[in-house]
Simulated scan of single mutants.
Amino acid sequence: MDDRHLIETQQSSEELLKGRFLHAFRDTVRLPDGSSAVREYVKHPGAVMIIPLLPDAAGEMRVVLERQYRYPVKQVMIEFPAGKLDPGEDILACAQRELQEETGYRATEWARAGVLHPVISYSTEFIEVWFARGLTLGERQLDEGEFLDVFSATPAELLQWCREGQVTDAKTLTGMLWLQNVLSGAWALDWRPAA
């Protein structure tokens, strides 16, 4: 497809904020019709989200989830484990690190599901979605100032929480879509051993 009739071209850029985590800009762009507009956005280093699969004693599949207070929305949210990439970090290594640090679990097998862009209107953020299985529990290593609860639920429970509005986190809702399609056999995963 030829998308030239949709492309905006940067004319100038102004840095608004450079924090420890976020980097905000205000750009002037030329629109496809030749006029100008202003775009404000945040540069983000990227992140990973993990969908950890945990069979229970009866062999029923469960997923590992977290409950964490998110200051911007002033709520405790139910989420899949996730975290941002460190500079130069390999994406799978980041997923393995975040799963272990936040939940204490290590996985013997990993499968990349895909990528999502949670807020395309004002951020460059992308989140790589990974599945993990063959979990063994060890010690968590939470970051300083990080507080969260780890628990497990069945996919049916998670789906109900999504439907009822208890889960509103965009990445977790997307993860539920992936999980449904993987469990139904509609979407296949390419599993590989942990490095």
Results as ranks from 00 to 15, higher is better:
Thr103Pro: 06
Glu14Asn: 11
Val119Phe: 14
Leu22Thr: 15
Val64Gly: 01
Gly83Gln: 04
Lys43Ile: 03
Val76Arg: 10
Met77Gln: 11
Asp2Ser: 08
Pro45Arg: 01
Arg26Asp: 06
Phe147Pro: 12
Glu125Trp: 03
Ser35Tyr: 00
Gly185Tyr: 07
Arg39Met: 10
Arg112Asn: 09
Pro87Met: 05
Lys43Met: 05
Val73His: 03
Tyr69Cys: 09
Asp3Trp: 15
Ala195Leu: 11
Val48Pro: 02
Ala82Met: 15
Asp2Tyr: 12
Glu60Val: 06
Pro118Glu: 04
Gly46Lys: 00
Val150Gln: 01
Asp190Met: 06
Asp190Leu: 11
Leu116Tyr: 14
His5Asn: 12
Thr154Ile: 10
Met176Asp: 10
Arg4Tyr: 06
Gln75Phe: 07
Tyr69Pro: 05
Val63Tyr: 00
Ile91Gly: 11
Gln166Ile: 08
Ala186Phe: 11
Val182Ala: 05
Ser12Ala: 10
Glu89Gly: 09
Tyr105Phe: 12
His117Val: 14
Arg112Thr: 08
Gln141Val: 09
Thr172His: 01
Tyr41Ser: 04
Glu89Ile: 01
Val48Glu: 00
Gly185Arg: 00
Arg106Ser: 15
Ser36Ile: 05
Leu17Ser: 11
Lys171Asn: 07
Glu40Leu: 08
Thr136Gln: 14
Phe131Gln: 10
Arg97Glu: 06
Val150Leu: 04
Gly114Gln: 10
Thr28Arg: 15
Lys18Asn: 10
Val42His: 09
Ser36Val: 05
Thr124Ser: 06
Ser123Leu: 04
Ala132Thr: 08
Leu92Glu: 02
Pro72Leu: 08
Lys74Thr: 13
Ile120Gly: 12
Tyr69Met: 08
Gln160Leu: 06
Leu135Trp: 00
Gln141Trp: 14
Thr174Asn: 11
Trp110Ala: 00
Arg140Pro: 12
Asn181Pro: 02
Ser36Trp: 02
